[in-house]
Amino acid sequence: MSQTLRHPEILDIARAEGKVTVEGLAERFGVTVQTIRRDLAELAEAGRLERVHGGAVLPSGVSNIGYEDRRVLNHPAKSAIARACAREIPDSASVFLNIGTSTEAVARELLDHRDLLVITNNMNVANILVSNPDCQVIVAAGTLRRSDGGLVGNLTIDTINQFKFDFAVIGCSALDAEGDLLDFDVQEVHVSQTIIRQARRSFLVADHSKFQRSAPARIASLSEIDTFFTDRPLPRDLTGRCASWGTRLRIASEGRGSEDPATAPATGQRGEAARG
């Protein structure tokens, strides 16, 4: 395969998997690792990828990946994470689901739950849960973000402040080594911060690709999250921090969509002081 044909396919793989490796691409295309390194160097120079040890990832920056690209990115992992999260939400609960393709996956897993109250600032979540007749859906007011169906702004925050819900299920665009949740849109960040404050328990749903990205605006720390649902173990240092904060880790298996207790260390309840 020529370089001209390889480059678009390399980008497609990066969008689907979050990362590409030199050895994996060399085997896939039947070329040398030196050839792949040149391909990645050219894509990085063009701003399409960022080089990391052993491969490349989608570039960080001040804008997010397009919504349709995010929808297919790591889809099996998001589905497994969503199943694990939905299992910890009981019937007859009040739940907030915010903007993001991971929270939309959780909404699909709530279609068989009974007697739910769901508040959301995500039009896609509302449309998904229309199919559950045993779920009352409240859509927060706000300014519509056409790119992904999200509602943001002061009206959204005012609506959220009228509720105290049992569970908040939120996503993020990136997660750094210190355990900070990051995003690209400052208005969305302010909404997410309000959601966490108004929740009795906060769940984060984010797949492993978020470990390899960066974004400029800080939402919160994992210390403010009760349970983090993801698909791969965190780096050792961050796992230790979560244990000290009392943030539970739940690793979802793509095969079964269930928690892997071998990689989910048992921790105690998060202290109220961590919510500050």
Rank of each mutant, 00 (worst) to 15 (best):
F167R: 02
A168P: 08
A168K: 07
A168L: 11
A168D: 06
A168Y: 05
V169K: 06
V169W: 11
V169M: 15
V169N: 06
V169H: 13
I170L: 12
I170T: 10
I170Q: 02
I170K: 06
I170W: 09
G171D: 05
G171Y: 08
C172P: 11
C172N: 12
S173E: 13
S173T: 03
S173L: 01
A174W: 01
A174R: 05
A174F: 03
A174M: 01
L175M: 04
L175K: 06
L175R: 03
L175W: 02
D176M: 02
D176V: 00
D176I: 00
D176T: 00
A177I: 05
A177K: 11
E178A: 15
E178P: 03
G179Y: 04
G179E: 01
G179K: 04
D180W: 05
L181Y: 10
L181T: 08
L181V: 04
L182S: 03
L182H: 06
L182D: 00
L182T: 10
D183K: 08
D183Y: 13
D183F: 13
F184A: 09
F184L: 06
D185M: 04
V186R: 12
V186H: 12
V186M: 15
Q187D: 08
Q187Y: 09
Q187S: 14
Q187L: 07
E188L: 10
E188A: 10
V189M: 09
V189A: 11
V189K: 08
H190G: 00
H190L: 15
H190S: 08
V191S: 11
V191Y: 07
V191Q: 08
V191C: 14
V191W: 13
S192G: 09
S192W: 00
Q193F: 03
T194H: 05
T194M: 05
T194I: 00
T194N: 10
I195V: 13
I195F: 02
I195G: 07
I196V: 07
I196P: 11
I196Q: 08
R197D: 12
R197T: 09
R197L: 02
R197G: 14
Q198R: 14
Q198E: 04
Q198D: 06
A199S: 15
A199M: 07
R200K: 13
R200P: 03
